[in-house]
């Protein structure tokens, strides 16, 4: 390992909030990987001919374990309680996978488009730059949540539609960042040398410019991931994303809205319906924000 990387890593793991962020993230990764072991995707309500519980076709559709839809307080069998006849722990565990899926797919795809548009604009400059940046301005002029909300309904609701909408309206920040970085790097000696050697444009961008500008983009992508998961959950919360019964924190919270008034005489009787999906979401977003912060401190010590 080279010393530079070693020093960076040592710096990273001296910072308590970075350690907390990485530990939380590791915890969620473990939960996501071992979801089938923590909450097996079976429905004990419907045994097959051998008496074994039925396997679920789609583990993301939470099995209905009881016909009463009212919340059931935490017990030994259901440590997080039940709502709508479904186990909250099951939803929280498999919801971790949903959250990773949404976050990673949207961030990867939108960063990819951002890099393409930003590099073209920055490298070629002139009217190409002008046109692409004005298109970026137009996309930035529609508030993100609103744009995602509108496009999702037009595409017809559902988690996949939410992701498409967020990708279409999520590339602009990356495009601007990479363009600004390329404008800086473009005049460096090694790029001019590559140009003088007659190397093709796309090779110059891919081999010489992008590797020198990619770190800030990665930091930005990490920092965006948390807020993207929040937006996706907000859309589910508004009833546009995952349907009721899908293992998704946002749609679970949407369902709990019917119960926030509590039972008669006990206002906070159903606290667990909000608490568990809510805390999962907060910790997940917190993890990414802390990691993003730590990475930024390492790569850009100026912004402390």
């Amino acid at each position: 390992m080279n010393t530079e990387l070693k020093r960076t890593l040592r710096k990273l793991f001296k910072n308590p909030s970075a350690i907390l962020g990485f530990s939380l993230l590791t915890f969620f990764i473990i939960v996501a990987i071992f979801a089938p072991l923590i909450s097996p995707p079976i429905n004990p309500m419907f045994p097959d001919e051998n008496g074994n519980p039925m396997k679920l076709d789609n583990p993301y559709i939470m099995p209905i374990l009881s016909w009463s839809s009212d919340p059931v307080p935490p017990s030994k069998d259901h440590p997080f309680g039940m709502i709508a006849g479904r186990d909250i722990l099951y939803g929280v565990v498999w919801g971790t996978r949903t959250a990773f899926k949404i976050g990673l797919i949207v961030v990867t795809a939108s960063t990819f488009f951002g890099i393409i548009i930003g590099s073209i604009a920055g490298y070629f400059g002139g009217w190409v730059d002008e046109v692409l940046m004005r298109i970026t301005d137009v996309f930035l002029s529609i508030p993100f949540l609103l744009a995602a909300m509108v496009l999702t309904t037009i595409l017809g609701s559902g988690l996949d539609k939410v992701m498409i909408a967020m990708i279409i309206f999520g590339w602009m920040a990356t495009a601007r960042l990479i363009r600004a970085n390329i404008l800086q790097v473009k005049e460096e000696q090694f790029v001019l040398a590559a140009k003088a050697l007659g190397i093709k444009n796309y090779i110059i961008i891919l081999r010489h410019i992008l590797p020198n500008t990619i770190f800030p983009v990665l930091v930005q992508a990490t920092m965006r991931l948390g807020s993207l998961v929040i937006t996706a959950a907000a859309l589910s919360f508004l009833g546009l994303g995952a349907p009721i019964g899908y293992a998704d924190w946002g749609s679970m919270l949407n369902y709990t809205r019917n119960y926030i008034l509590g039972a008669s005489g006990q206002a906070l009787a159903y606290w667990y319906t909000v608490f568990y999906p809510g805390i999962a979401m907060v910790l997940f977003v917190l993890a990414w924000n802390l990691v993003g912060d730590a990475l930024r401190d390492v790569f850009d010590p100026k912004l402390k």
Partner: peptide
């Protein structure tokens, strides 16, 4: 600050309603 930054408004809103309205 960092908790507030990671707290989705709809989660916190539900908590506010539960405490300051229901309870």
């Amino acid at each position: 600050a960092i908790i507030g930054w990671s707290l989705p408004d709809f989660v916190f809103g539900l908590i506010v309603l539960m405490i300051f309205y229901s309870a």
